[in-house]
Amino acid sequence: MVLKVFCRTMSADNRVCAERFIRPLAGERKNSLFFGSDKMAGVSAVYHTIIFTCRMQGVSVLDYFKRFFSEIVKGRRDYEYLLPLTIGLEQ
């Protein structure tokens, strides 16, 4: 319902953009039915959220995960500063 109202106010080009943005999320929702547990579906949702955040901000996903896990191994626990935009990667 909300998407229909949102799409009516947008031009055709923006509708395509919105559809491209929503498509992976809908696929993730359908795939989460087969993870076997709620915990694993939640873990998958977290990883997909991080990946899409990196893509939206123009940060390399692989570089982010390398930096994130190396900081965690070092013992860093200030998670607010380990987000894709605050970890210190160049865009």
Rank of each mutant, 00 (worst) to 15 (best):
H48F: 10
M56A: 12
K74R: 14
T53N: 05
I50T: 03
A26F: 06
K4H: 06
L3V: 05
G36W: 11
F68N: 02
C7I: 09
L83W: 07
M10A: 09
K4S: 09
C54S: 02
V73F: 07
K74C: 06
E28A: 15
F21P: 05
Q57F: 03
F65V: 09
K39I: 15
I50M: 07
A45I: 05
V16M: 11
Y64H: 03
R23A: 12
F34D: 15
A26Q: 06
Q57G: 02
K30M: 13
F69Y: 12
R8L: 04
S44D: 09
Q91A: 13
F65R: 00
D78A: 15
E71C: 01
R29T: 14
Y79G: 08
F69N: 02
L89K: 04
K66E: 02
R20Q: 07
T9H: 09
F21Y: 10
Y79E: 06
A41Q: 01
F6R: 11
A26T: 00
S60P: 02
T53M: 05
T49C: 09
L62Q: 05
Q91I: 07
E90M: 14
D63Q: 14
L85F: 06
L33Q: 15
V16S: 12
A18E: 12
G27N: 14
R15A: 02
C54K: 00
L85M: 08
